[in-house]
Design a protein around this nucleic acid. Sequence first.
DNA 1: AGCCGATGGTGAAACGATTAACTTATGGTG
DNA 2: CACCATAAGTTAATCGTTTCACCATCGGCT
Lengths: 352, 352
Amino acid sequence: MVTMKDVAKAAGVSVATVSYAFSKSSKVSATQRERIYSVAADLGYAGPNIAGSSLRSGRIGAVGVIVPDSPVQALEDPSVTLLMKGIAEIGNSADIALTLFPASRGGAADSPPNSLVLRGLVDGVVIHNVPDGHPLVEAIIARGIPAVVVDSPRSAGLPFVAIDDRNGAYLQMDHILKLGHRRVGIIVDKLDQRTDCRMATLDDVGAATERNARERLAGYLDAARDHHLPVEDLSIVVAGNIDRAAGDEATRILLEFAQPTALVATSDVHAVAAWQVLRERGLAVPGDMSVIGFDDAPVAELLGLSTIHQPIVEKGRAAATILLDRLGGGTRTRSLMKTSLVVRASTAPPRG
Amino acid sequence: MVTMKDVAKAAGVSVATVSYAFSKSSKVSATQRERIYSVAADLGYAGPNIAGSSLRSGRIGAVGVIVPDSPVQALEDPSVTLLMKGIAEIGNSADIALTLFPASRGGAADSPPNSLVLRGLVDGVVIHNVPDGHPLVEAIIARGIPAVVVDSPRSAGLPFVAIDDRNGAYLQMDHILKLGHRRVGIIVDKLDQRTDCRMATLDDVGAATERNARERLAGYLDAARDHHLPVEDLSIVVAGNIDRAAGDEATRILLEFAQPTALVATSDVHAVAAWQVLRERGLAVPGDMSVIGFDDAPVAELLGLSTIHQPIVEKGRAAATILLDRLGGGTRTRSLMKTSLVVRASTAPPRG
DNA sequence: AGCCGATGGTGAAACGATTAACTTATGGTG
DNA sequence: CACCATAAGTTAATCGTTTCACCATCGGCT
């Protein structure tokens, strides 16, 4: 491996000078710097080794994104990959790499605490959709690792990027109720760690540890109140996971226990799954049942799914911008995004 | 920051002992190890600092994936995110993080060579869909950085994971010709660096620097020959980019210069885009025109797109497995995957 | 002439961890 | 009882950079 020492020797200068050259310090003249670069290129020196550099300077040139559970699950969710896209865009132009972490391990019982994040593999992190109180998040806060939270503004003192979930949910339910629906089924993505699919009461949702679920439900209730709809007419099912399978299951459960004329989902993934299930059962959308999602993932446009648009990529950009600002000593704290209703072909007035 | 030294002092042992404890070496007894862990936990020590550890040991605990151009583009392509999913799955269980890199910068003219990959931010990389001869790939090979290539087995000496593109393409075209189509349009994703959308001749495609394009075209020609179809009846258009917009444009160009009864695309993204364009023009699929894609991305199933299935997630798993094996001193070299035809609702015999 | 402030450079001490080589008990064996 | 292998530690060198504190040189000013 060729090191700075080799370059220094070949260029006939001290290691310090080479280091200053690579950091573009004014301590070395422009001509000297160019000379050093060319010597370095001849030797095949790729630039300061990250480990050495990071050890001394404390900066490593990468930021991480922490996603719930494992990246495995997350990478199938477009709202996660698009967020990453936004982060990558900003990181890219600052020559900062993006690293993925699972939020799972905070230190298993028998093994030593071992989190690559806490051990300094990245300079800072974007925390997405991880429940507050999660050991990893707590540890990150405790150790003062720069972090930005996306979608969960509660985290004590951390800067955040979010949408107004309650209002988004309101728009969603309001649209359905305005169309005249009175029996509405709701598919909530996740209340807490539980990943099983089940019916839930209003109280269950109100007591959820996932902020999203609580906020959006609040929005649904706001809308129901404004339209004088008794809350008993809402059937709620929890999917447990954000994937097709969970959406299928949730839909089946819902159809078994209730006869809604409209289906409101907190995620496009579930809305799409529901649509498929309905189609398989020979039910027409929106003829027999209206379906509306949340996120406006690319697939929503393809299928013609009515949904609530949220600027996911922009959220990623905003999070990265705040994080980089913080890493540079800045003090930006938050960014709020707007949502809007997108009406497509999956919603219509109830039959009859 | 709390270091190993602090833990050692608090536990009344040497730094070496703490290090051995964390690496689970037999040089420290189990009871001692537990004691050290608990002291570490009390102090809030998160485990060996990556920079220090990596500097000394040469291992950093992360692998990278290099995607064409910027992660920005790639993160919108499901065939890329699903590959990442596969890699992440394997990395995850080995406690190895996944880092994203753009293939763009190999060292701009005026600035010093500066690639986080070459500077050791990761232990090894999966190179996906990057044209051979790319400066970054060359540099990686030159420096002996462990790497696995996905989808481009040409790279001298590098282990690889791939499908039989030629056969996959054959299956695709064979299906269309068996249905009786004789005027077929082809949308090829990318021939080389050019990102503009244009018509192409057989020679253009044959001379492409992208291996995928050449292989798949060869498969199309094989099928045409077997069905006694004159190659002049094939119209080829190059999309230039793998995104919706490029697919739209390619379709429009194709419809302008030819009157195919079937459309064969080298990517589901383009096939879906084409379908949308046809729908907008009031053409029925498969009534007025058949459409078939390649990849079997999740959206293909949703829309009912006929396509060639390839196991993308498994490709990621295989690549990661080979890479980790190499990092551990192993010598695995390759893994070949199978493709298969999936007939759904977008293909049918030509009208009349 | 003498002094001063730039400019362009050097030397050497960290940074935090790993690991080869050495040391010291401890227990087992002939 | 002497001898030795093993277990459980310790010491110290080392990894590649960064950066603080110094130092020389030189032109310009009084």
